[in-house]
């Protein structure tokens, strides 16, 4: 399901909202990532031609920020916070449990069916709710391995 087929209309719709210019590159890439869950390679040459910004410069921006991904991501991106507060309140067992249930690892964080991506983040800024995990943009506070497992089962069910 990787989107290597060009879809100019998607990018044009994004450009209409963000504006066209070198200073909008980050906003454009963010919108592209929101749509595809990652940055497909064809997007770079398309944006480069539209903005008059070199592909190498776009690649430079995209690889500078951890948040941009050049690899396809799952429909659900699960982020387990491993900041100091979450870590001391036992975020690692949550991560271990989810990895085991999804069959993913730090090196291969996305499931083969492109449904789930499991990542860690350094801090979500919600330390009072530790340990925290997010699914796409929704925050789940005070998690345990069991609660995380139930959450995952629920997501899997909605996809059946």
């Amino acid at each position: 399901m990787t989107r290597e087929r060009s879809e100019p209309e998607v990018i044009e719709a994004i450009l209409e909202k963000t504006g066209i210019g070198e200073s909008y590159v980050i906003a454009i890439l963010q919108a592209v990532q929101e749509h595809y869950h990652y940055l497909p390679q064809w997007v770079f040459s398309y944006i480069s031609a539209r903005l008059g910004v070199g592909i190498a410069r776009l690649y430079s921006v995209a690889t500078f920020y951890e948040n941009f991904s050049l690899e396809p991501k799952g429909k659900y991106v699960l982020r387990v916070c491993d900041g100091t507060a979450c870590h001391v309140r036992k975020s690692v067992p949550i991560l271990t449990r989810l990895r085991a249930e999804l069959g993913v690892s730090a090196e291969v964080p996305t499931t083969g069916d492109l449904l789930f991506t499991l990542e860690t983040v350094s801090c979500l800024g919600a330390c009072g709710l530790a340990p925290v995990l997010t699914v796409n943009d929704k925050v789940y506070p005070a998690m345990t391995p069991e609660a995380a497992s139930r959450l995952l089962a629920g997501l899997k069910e909605t996809e059946l």
């Binding site: 070199g54 190498a56 410069r57 690889t63």
Partner: peptide, 10 residues
């Protein structure tokens, strides 16, 4: 103005 190379990564 060729732009063949740039920094990548961080």
């Amino acid at each position: 103005n060729v732009g063949a190379i740039d920094f990548a990564g961080r």
